[in-house]
Amino acid sequence: MNGVTEVRAGLPPRGGAARWRRWPGRVLPGPRTTPFTFWYALLLVATSLFAAYADPARVAELLRGSSTDAAHLAATPVRVLVASALWIDGGLLSGFALAFVVVPAALERRVGAARTLAVFLGGHVLATLATELPVGAAVATGALPPGAAHRLDYGISYGVMTCAGALTGVLPGRLRWLLLGGAACYATADLLTFADPLSSAGHLLSLALGVTAWPLLRRARSGPRPARLHGDLGHPALRRPVARPAVARPVPGRPVPVAGARRR
């Protein structure tokens, strides 16, 4: 138009610019779309900042008290299972911190907050018990030294890996196998380094736990959707017939009333 730029006032941008502006809302958690991931992420940010800037002795004491080692699981299992999920091993710049922002949020958008919470906590608890209870049994039988029962163990990695395994079940074909293969390769490579074999085995187990949740999550997605606002009536069974106003039929010999006319 001879160098004149057309401006569409009040309308969203077209093409690639609109997609680039919308992608943060589709990837990052939000208080309305993904409330579980959003508020949990804020809690993790707070605890991570405390761990980074508070007194190191106080932080070490809290982490030790939150550890899900065999000794703590035998004494106060519920407390340490909850407290250990309030910290990020490695801080805000760790890989699992970045994965938490994306993976549980993507799962929550597809299956809801309650099921995402169940998947995360289920993986966190089951993988912790599966890796630490054998250690406690080995210490009790003398196969391991007593110090093994006080191994420092905390963080969100088991829950994140379980959510990653569950997310692959509700993604389309290529994305499903790409995410599952990448997560499995990471956990396997970490196990082969033998730096922390117990945690690495827990990561593989967590991923497998998420995969076992595929049938439940798919069944939940295939069920009837509840009715939503803004004109979406959801499932046909939830639709209600709309009552139409009665129309008066003309009677022979009587004038038809006209809207807006008044009788005198």
Rank of each mutant, 00 (worst) to 15 (best):
76 T>M: 13
242 V>C: 02
120 F>G: 02
210 G>D: 00
200 S>G: 09
173 G>W: 13
145 P>R: 14
179 L>W: 03
249 R>W: 01
255 P>W: 03
205 L>Q: 01
117 L>E: 05
217 L>W: 05
16 G>E: 11
71 A>Q: 13
21 R>Y: 05
198 L>M: 11
1 M>Q: 12
120 F>N: 07
222 S>I: 09
138 A>M: 13
141 T>H: 13
50 F>T: 09
176 R>I: 10
71 A>V: 04
25 G>L: 14
184 A>S: 09
148 A>R: 10
258 V>D: 09
132 E>G: 07
137 A>W: 14
208 A>S: 02
188 T>F: 01
70 A>K: 11
146 P>K: 06
44 L>Y: 03
243 A>V: 06
113 A>T: 12
253 G>F: 08
178 L>A: 15
246 A>Y: 01
149 A>L: 14
246 A>T: 08
25 G>A: 15
107 L>I: 02
127 A>R: 00
2 N>I: 10
127 A>H: 02
88 I>M: 08
72 H>G: 09
3 G>T: 07
67 S>G: 10
167 L>I: 05
226 P>N: 06
92 L>T: 08
160 V>P: 00
157 S>V: 08
217 L>R: 08
218 R>W: 09
132 E>N: 14
175 L>A: 15
116 T>C: 05
157 S>P: 05
146 P>C: 08
